[in-house]
């Protein structure tokens, strides 16, 4: 198990070192804006803020309210494309 987590850390390290993580993040962000995910979540944020009150809302509140919804709302096509790229990266660098 410790070996597994060690390996995960190594892969993550590599993702960051190669700059691939940043690229993937940028791609994901662009896709999510494009498909309206961001607008949906913003609308949800609005509800949360109105509920809690403008002055009292914290980042933690937003994160706990928004993250589950955000995960669920990512379209399958976007997931698929990201996974494709991650797999390609893994195939390239896991067998070095």
């Amino acid at each position: 198990m410790s070996k597994d987590s060690q390996m995960r850390a190594a892969i993550n390290q590599k993702l960051i070192e190669m700059g691939e993580r940043e690229r993937l993040k940028e791609l994901l962000r662009a896709k999510l804006v494009e498909c309206g995910w961001k607008d949906q979540l913003k609308a949800h944020c609005k509800d949360v803020i109105k509920e809690k009150g403008l002055e009292h809302v914290t980042v933690e509140d937003l994160v706990t309210e928004v993250t589950p919804k955000g995960r669920a709302l990512v379209p399958d096509s976007v997931k698929k494309e990201l996974l494709q790229r991650i797999r390609a990266f893994l195939a390239q660098h896991a067998t070095l």
């Binding site: 994901l28 961001k38 803020i49 993250t67 991650i86």
Partner: peptide, 24 residues
């Protein structure tokens, strides 16, 4: 490998959510 890919994806999505939260 597949599990790892899924984890990386959910990490990225979480990052995006966090970014949005900060922005909002």
């Amino acid at each position: 490998l597949e599990g790892l890919a899924q984890d990386i994806l959910s990490d990225l999505v979480e990052d995006a959510c966090l970014g949005l939260c900060f922005e909002v």
